[in-house]
Design a protein around this nucleic acid. Structure first.
Lengths: 115, 115
DNA sequence: GCGGGCAGTTTCCAGCTGGTTACCGAAAAG
DNA sequence: CTTTTCGGTAACCAGCTGGAAACTGCCCGC
């Protein structure tokens, strides 16, 4: 549920895991990416998707991910404002990892309930 | 590279992602699991595998994972002491997620160099 | 004229946490 | 005799960071 990104120690140059965790890292990041996996979503939709993420953290995570090229932020000139977030190609490359995490989680839940 | 576990907000009851992240979460946890994926390893081997993890954090992560049933700690009565860590069945269930993260990372590295 | 929804921003604060350093006992190596 | 290895533990400290609450501007509906 909670990933944290370090500021100092960035991804080790040639390490695949570091490379990937550098993008997945950060509190709630996997949840956000999961919400975006089905297609573009607006800020308030993302917030309703996972009500435990505060607005501040949601904003911060989205900005980070935008900066890293994982998603795009598209402000539409409507009123009230509409902002759509969408995974980039880079973002979509992360989905197999996200899906795998969800799959493993599902299996663990089953395991729990069936003993 | 760095995942952080929250103390208060544990896994949401029925959420697969939370369920899985609850075990993967915590700084360096994926790296440790990755090191153990090939078989049992000793403390000092784990430390050499990833020299950026301090002894303190390594210990703390291993104890957490043991408590959660992800790995076993086996102290052998040798001198100097030998301690072996090994994934449990539960721990092995996490490997698909870990592998997927590594795979995605590898693809991203390739993308960087050929892109 | 009031409230509400959108999409945030700002401020402040507590707390967890990871890094660093020092230290442990036993035994083997030099 | 000294140093190293093994597998840690204890103490201390700085810093990031997430949470909470208040505030913003704009427009629509009542």
């Amino acid at each position: 549920m909670v990933l944290k990104v370090r500021k100092k120690v960035r991804a080790l140059p040639g390490c695949p895991m570091s490379k990937c965790m550098d993008l997945l890292g950060g509190c709630w990041t996997p949840e956000v990416l999961w919400s975006l996996s089905e297609g573009p979503r607006r800020f308030s939709e993302l917030r309703r998707d996972n009500p435990f993420i505060s607005a501040k953290v949601m904003t911060s995570r989205l900005r980070d991910l935008e900066k890293r090229g994982v998603l795009t932020r598209n402000v539409m000139p409507t009123s009230p404002p509409t902002v759509e977030y969408e995974l980039t190609d880079l973002g979509k490359e992360l989905l197999p990892a996200i899906r795998s995490i969800v799959e493993v989680g599902s299996r663990l839940l089953l395991r729990d309930s069936t003993g």
